[in-house]
Nucleic acid binder design. Structure first.
Lengths: 194, 194
DNA sequence: CGAATTATCGACCAATTCATTCGAAGGCTT
DNA sequence: AAGCCTTCGAATGAATTGGTCGATAATTCG
């Protein structure tokens, strides 16, 4: 009812929850359908395939993350706080993302080349944001960086390193504590402690 | 190597992690084998079947919970604190247990009759513990209960109600807060506020 | 050593699962 | 009632999966 696009959105939300919990492979169309209280075949009226839904979900998730990040840096003033909250929010998001990875790594990751596309675009955006924060911070003498472009890349690489699911495996550890520790390490070499 | 029983234990631990994450159905023998870095068929040297492993895992998990609960009530003195920490630890354990449920509920739960056996024994034990704490608390005028047997059953029923996975579905909510709220409600009618 | 026992593995199988298709049909608008 | 939009049950063919079996290392023991 209502609107086709509206319903597609509903499917994305619902399927997204299941995907994020069980990953691509372990999520069945039956489950997605059941969660939506509809017949399995009905879903094919809105999406071509399971992969198609997955793509929409990942895209949607990426947008959410982007919004979270932009609001995170908007809500604070100083470059240091901007950088802190950006890195913090992004790292926390990996907990969610790692669940997607978990099942994708299973096999033919190359099949999901749309992820590569999203990632590239996303990486460029992120680099620009980081560079900007660093540049501003350097100007205000909060950061001790001479080449913001270069340092931004270094930070991004660090963040990327945290993306591997391995990092999130041990659920027992308190994630917050770990993130804070990394934040400390990351800033120790950046902040200008005059 | 080492010992057959030792290795069975290794399998139980390793498989337990996967089961608790994905549930019975979504966990494959290949995954269990891979996690143990061994061939799938080798596992059948230690266990008869997948169900068999699952049974051992649940049994193991039940023992862990029992230990946690007994140490929880041993570590405090007053009946009120005993009751608080017992209920709290038990409720937190359900988060883990709900994952097992999640996949069992799928279909033929009746096939896992060993769970029924564990449960019954476990329930009896729990009832005895609760009754004891209540009785002691009543004697010390901390609790306002006349029939500890009866009240223990009421508390156990309340706890059981929380076991349904439905309760844990919405991951966003802060579980701790919710548990504390329930604890409050639970005690409001019990504690003797003279 | 060499025989017996213990432990591991790859190849295979039958049963099941799963994504996807398709035609029928319900329901809504005009 | 005609034409669309939407839903669904049944069917299907390919892939997955729990479990088996015989071969064969690896280890123990006389």
């Amino acid at each position: 009812m209502i609107n086709k696009e509206e319903f597609r959105r509903k499917i994305i939300i619902s399927a997204g929850q299941i995907f994020s919990r069980y990953g691509f492979k372990k999520t069945t169309m039956d489950e997605i359908a059941k969660a939506l209280k509809m017949g399995k075949s009905s879903i094919y009226y809105y999406f071509e395939s399971k992969e198609n839904i997955f793509e929409a979900v990942v895209l949607h998730e990426a947008n959410i993350l982007r919004n979270e990040l932009t609001t995170a840096i908007k809500s604070v003033e100083s470059p240091l706080d901007k950088m802190k909250s950006y890195v913090f929010v992004r790292m926390k998001a990996f907990e969610k993302l790692s669940n997607y990875y978990n099942a994708i790594f299973d096999k033919n990751l190359d099949h999901f080349d749309f992820i590569e596309t999203i990632r590239e675009k996303y990486d460029r955006e992120e680099l620009a944001i980081l560079r900007l924060i660093l540049y501003d911070g350097a100007k205000k003498k909060v950061f001790n960086v001479t080449n913001s472009e270069y340092t931004a890349m270094a930070i991004q690489t660090t963040l990327k390193g945290l993306e591997v699911p391995l990092f999130w495996k041990k659920k027992e550890e308190h994630i917050e504590k770990r993130l804070n520790a990394i934040l400390d390490v990351l800033f120790y070499g950046i902040v200008n402690n005059h």
